[in-house]
Nucleic acid binder design. Sequence first.
DNA 1: TAGCCTCTAGACAACGTTGTCAAACGAGGG
DNA 2: CCCTCGTTTGACAACGTTGTCTAGAGGCTA
Lengths: 346, 346
Amino acid sequence: MTDTARGTSRRYGTRPTMKDVAARAGVGLKTVSRVVNGEAGVTPDTERRVQEAITALGFRRNDSARILRKGRTASIGLVLEDLADPFYGPLSRAVEEVARSHGALLINGSSAEDPAREQELVLALCARRVDGLVIIPAGDDHRYLEPEITAGIATVFVDRPAGRIDADAVLCDNFGGARDAVAHLIAHGHRRIGFIGDQPRIHTARERLRGYRSAMAAAGLPVDDSWVSLGSTAPERVRSAATAMLDAPEPVTALFAGNNRVTVTAVRVLGASPRPVALVGFDDFELADLVRPAVTVVAQDPALMGRTAATLLFRRLDGITEPPHHTEIPTRLIPRGSGEIPPAEG
Amino acid sequence: MTDTARGTSRRYGTRPTMKDVAARAGVGLKTVSRVVNGEAGVTPDTERRVQEAITALGFRRNDSARILRKGRTASIGLVLEDLADPFYGPLSRAVEEVARSHGALLINGSSAEDPAREQELVLALCARRVDGLVIIPAGDDHRYLEPEITAGIATVFVDRPAGRIDADAVLCDNFGGARDAVAHLIAHGHRRIGFIGDQPRIHTARERLRGYRSAMAAAGLPVDDSWVSLGSTAPERVRSAATAMLDAPEPVTALFAGNNRVTVTAVRVLGASPRPVALVGFDDFELADLVRPAVTVVAQDPALMGRTAATLLFRRLDGITEPPHHTEIPTRLIPRGSGEIPPAEG
DNA sequence: TAGCCTCTAGACAACGTTGTCAAACGAGGG
DNA sequence: CCCTCGTTTGACAACGTTGTCTAGAGGCTA
């Protein structure tokens, strides 16, 4: 009957519990709980004995049991489109930092822009009883969340509003940012401006298109149907859309790219174009200033959006009860060169 | 005594349990469990009654309790340096995809390159009883993990090996990649080559330095101490290190940048340099081909590394017992222009 | 009809923790 | 010396689920 840490005839893969620690230290179960949680009312001598037993056995509290008992999981869920997208990395990190400052862990999942997968993920997180959710929605119907919200799971949407339910949302000024971008191109003399955006299912794509049309209308400019292309942001799709606009009999002289994925592909296409074409992109991206010409963008601040959303989430968890509302984060036009190229009349 | 979904006099914030469902459906607790888990042995009629009660009450199984009972959490932890770093986004996503294909959720946390925070995170994940861990270590002593591994938490290290314990690791060929990079510069005529790398505490930084020295030695070239600078990858630090090497009486004619953060800053510094300086960077990055000159890099494949690590993790969870081993992922030199610039002798 | 077998269903304990409550103990005051 | 009070301590139930085991209903065969 050895008495070492690995001893006590435990099977591999089994962990000691408080009961084991209590037995070893010769104290009651509750006393171990008290020591583990740093509660008052334990003699230094008892505490020492318990600590020794904990170390010897390699005990670690089972938070699953704790969560079950306490009802709070100290974790929040984040559902976004794709962690590999550079837009979401900083956002996710910002949410994590806020969570951390509240002692919570972050569980995240990628929806891959698939509404069914979004729902599956969200409900899995709810089943885990996360305290709250930050969601960048892929779908446009979130009524499936109603019982969860009623049950007390705080929920904040980011980047796009919730569909068919009333919920908090942190959005950027998609309409205004797009309008500014297009107005900027118009101010530099462009009349035929193309817009390549994300799938029309996506709220931000629609809003940015609306901004585009608004700016064109404000300048009294017509919009030819062939100048607008919404769809997948896959490079091939964007490439062919851009090429079509550039090779038309009356080609566009400027492009407004609907998000960072589109912009990057547009830069590649324009780099191969024989005549200069102006470009403004929605979303800033690393190295935008190093490309030649440097890329003019309408920047949003993903970290700020994440921070704002997470902060609001924890305020909800702290019990504030004001009705859900939408927070709008402003955008900022950063002229770098590509957006100031004058129209090349051919 | 209303009988609607919101009724049954539940407090806001309380969720119905199987017991509630059972009461409402007029069946036993276990029968509800069977229906929820799709187990056999329930008549269609009973099942229908239970399903109705579930829908009416908005019941969702509490996975905390399930986890406690079953012992498996169906979740794995990922600890990395910083989700906002474009190197880790694809890696994290790849790990998530593998986890998803095994029905597991991913909990991740950023260590911010702080060993204490790494340990805190890892132990928090262990307390949650994640089934396994993928760790990109910040520290160099992981003995604190020994009891956890003994207790059955599978662990795979990525990008850097574990410190002072024997554990699985998926690494890239840092030494070979760095040697190739520097040999490439030497082959293009360079004799004075600078190396700016990450902090020497970090394994990859040391290995890449070793590769640098090896290539120089193989070519019979001396290495001046002023050509080597390890430290933070903060832009200011990198900028001043690069500037010092370029402004020396006998300036370096080429730079080898130790990771993507360093490379990006180096590109900016070199862009402002009056004379051309060759550059090879470790890690590929988006738009490396669009910068002028396009940046020659030694590419590694973060998604492949994540996938490899996660796959190995789940094989361990499935019970394979071979001893821990290190998997090495090869690197690939991609010449794009900046690495082929000849030395500008002043 | 007795005996056996299959199938559905529920009672109960257990997972590992924490909240409640009461017992035991020692010290201090009258 | 008794009583009270405060402190330390442990017994017990509960959190919501799942595994085990047994009861009961019903059908089939002999």
